[in-house]
Amino acid sequence: MKPGRAYLQKLGGPGLTLMALALLATFPLYASVYSMTLLTDILMFVVLALSWALFSAPTGYISLAPAAFFGVGIYTSAILGRQWPLLLTIALGGAISFCLALLVGALTLRLKGIYFAMFTFGLVELIKHFWLWFEIRFTGTRGRFVAVVDQQTIYFTMLASFVLLLLTTHLIRRSRWGLALRSIGECEEAAAHIGVNVNALKTITFAISAIFMGAAGAIIATRWTYVDPYIAFNPLYSFMAVLMALFGGMGHPYGPVLGAAIFAYLEEVLLTRFPYYYMLIFGVVLIITVLYLPEGLIGLMMRIRRRVVGGPDAPA
C-alpha cells in the first residue's frame, strides 16, 4: 500500500466511522418511525452483504448460503420468540447458524470452489423443502406468527449487530488470520504448504460469518409477524448479499456497506411498485459489475480519487 493512501485512511477511517456511528445511534431521537424502519432494512442488508464478504471476499469462495443462515435465524425467532428474551433468541439464532455453517463448511470446503458454490446454491432449497415438509407433517402448520417487538428495539439490535460485525471484520482483516484468508484466495495450495491450516481456517471463518446472518434473521423476523418456509428461506437473500457486496466492492469493508445501502434503498423505493423492474435492474447491474467494475464502486472511487489527487497509478 502506498504511504499516501494509508495516511488518508488513517486520517479519515476511524474518525468518519465514529461520526457515522454516532449519527446512527442517535437517529431515532430525531427521525420518523418510517425512516427508522427503512434504515433497519438497510442495516439488515448491510449485515448480510458485509458478513458474506467477511468470508467470500478474501478467499474467493462464492457462498450462496446466506439465505439459509438468515432463514435459520428467522425460524429461531419464530419458534422461541414468545418465551425467550429477545437478546437470547438472537444469540441462539447466531449460534445455530454457526453450528450449521461449521458442519456445511467442514463437509464442503474441501471441494473445488465451483462445487462449493453449487452446494451452497442448493442448500437453501434443501432446508426450505425439508422444513416445509417437517412443519406440515409434525406440527401441522405451514407458517408461524412471530412475537412482535417495537421498532426502536429492532433498530438498535440491528445496529448493534452491524457494529459488532464491523469490528469483527476489522479485527480479522488486520490480524494474521486476515492475511492467511487472503493467501487462500491468492493461491490455496501454496498457503497450505507454508503452514496455513486452510480447511480449518475456511470453515471457522465461514461459520463466523454465518453468526451475523443468523442474528440478522432473528432480529428482522420480529417485524415480519408471519413467516413460512418460502418467506424465510428465500434464495433471493443470498443473491442480494452477493450482488450488494460485489457492486460495492470488496477491497474495503465499506464497499459492501455502500453497495447494500444503495440497493436496500432502491428496493424500498421500487420493489413494492415495480417488483419486476427492480429485479430486472438488479440483474443488469450484476452483469455490468462483473463486466466493467471488478473492484466495485469503492474501487472506482479510489481510482478516481487517485487520478484527481495525482501521483503514479502504481499497482497497489
Binding site: 474467493g60 462464492i62 450482488l243 460485489l246 419486476y276 440483474g283 447491474v285 452483469i287 462483473v290
Partner: peptide, 25 residues
C-alpha cells in the same frame, strides 16, 4: 480459469434475473 468460472457464474445470475423478470413482465 478459476476467475472465469466465478465471474461467469455470477454473470449467469444476472441473466437469470433479467430473463425471469422480462418474462414476468
Amino acid at each position: 480459469p478459476g476467475v472465469f468460472e466465478s465471474n461467469s457464474m455470477l454473470a449467469a445470475f444476472g441473466l437469470m434475473f433479467i430473463i425471469q423478470n422480462v418474462a414476468l413482465i
